[in-house]
Nucleic acid binder design. Structure first.
Lengths: 221, 221
DNA sequence: CGTGGCGCGTGACTTCGTCACAGACATGCT
DNA sequence: AGCATGTCTGTGACGAAGTCACGCGCCACG
């Protein structure tokens, strides 16, 4: 049973697959499941655990008092909640929210182990540092995006990126929070995309009709 | 001569003042000066050095193609360019610009030493991790600020924070880039603040006249 | 079948960014 | 002093985006 944990780690977190870490993980880590919609971490909370996601996705976002949201990034299998790591190690409060977007499985490592392994395992150090560093850069890139690019370009980008088989199965509301905008604004932009023949709209679904046309919107018009 | 470096470190970076690190720093680190306006690091560059600032301030910001800017944070004596550290350790490109705002003095540590000390010194590890973690949280907080608070609240906040003896010796242009806004917009808001008797305006200077009135603007109106 | 909630469309209004231009002031030069 | 040049600021006009409010269609569920 416990042996399974390090097997999963080896598969999804290959850089952690050193013999000593595998033994440590088997001995001290646990697995958890979080149902879709469950909170992983709340703003301002002190974090006690570091989750390594093995299945499902977690959405990390900030939220205004009035309920507006901006998605910072998503955590996918093989990644970890670096904000948690970051506030564990920097002794800061968690500055955002993290909720399970789908059912999520994760390996959780206790705060004390996270810190101990930082001292004892080079592989663990590299793993945690690399995650934090890449996320940091990603969030800054996101900030540039939000501040400088126009919404129609970001929307086109988003649609092309989120489409599966030419379809984006999301509500305007969800798209808006991912883009850091408001539902009404997204609806309007989508409508004009439809009028230009680039997409067709249905309830909770956007179907791409002209991906080249959408790509043409990516630059600043 | 070389002994001076570790003395400065001991004073400004007390968490680094272990005997072994002091010896390492004396042996391998160097000091540099950067004149006001000089570039510390450019967007997309691979970083080769980690600067520990001992005097002056560095402004770290992102910039759009058209030249609009948003200040992410400032590095003051006793702090370090964590973005540099972050991309050193995560092998990512530097996602922003860092420019000396005043004349700056710094101790620079070579990439190879940064990495080596991560493995050998617990004090160094804690220092670097703490810096990165706190900055990460700070940038996310900044993002919330930019996305959710209105400009008049942010402006009031900024003025109260940046004032020395009730005066902010900056141009509207500088204030605008710090706030991530545009000069004309800031000028307008300052004008209405002046009309309401909260400040008086002169060339390159804002004088606070009613700090309680300004504080009243901090919430969302 | 209602009926209540959710997703969407739309108009009116505000805030903010962009662009353009003009006047005020500073600095340095002749 | 007089002038030129560059910086800083004020302002109007406009477009892009966020806010608020309301109505309508669709779907699920009793």
């Amino acid at each position: 049973m416990a042996a399974r944990i390090s097997e999963v780690v080896t598969e999804l977190f290959p850089t952690l697959a050193t013999p000593s870490l595998r033994a440590e993980v088997d001995a001290r880590a646990q697995t958890v499941r979080v149902p879709a919609g469950g909170f992983i971490c709340m703003e301002g909370e002190a974090c006690q655990m570091l989750p390594l996601v093995t299945a499902g996705t977690v959405r990390v976002f900030v939220q205004s008092d009035e309920g507006r949201e901006v998605t910072l990034y998503r955590i996918r299998p093989g990644e970890s909640c670096v904000l948690t790591a970051s506030c564990l190690l920097g002794e800061a409060d968690f500055p955002a929210f993290a909720v399970a977007e789908t059912d999520v499985r994760a390996i959780v490592v206790r705060l004390s182990d996270v810190q101990a392994w930082m001292d004892t395992s080079e592989a663990w150090r590299g793993f945690v540092l690399g995650l934090i560093a890449r996320r940091f850069a990603e969030v800054i890139g996101r900030m540039e995006d939000l501040m400088f690019r126009r919404l129609d370009a970001r929307l086109a980008d988003y649609l092309l990126d989120a489409a599966i088989d030419g379809e984006v199965a999301r509500t305007h509301e969800q798209i808006a929070t991912d883009l850091g905008s408001a539902r009404a604004v997204v609806s309007r932009h989508l409508k004009t995309l439809e009028q230009n023949g680039l997409v067709t709209l249905d309830r909770s679904r956007v179907t791409l009709r002209d991906t080249t046309g959408l790509r043409a919107l990516l630059q600043r018009p």
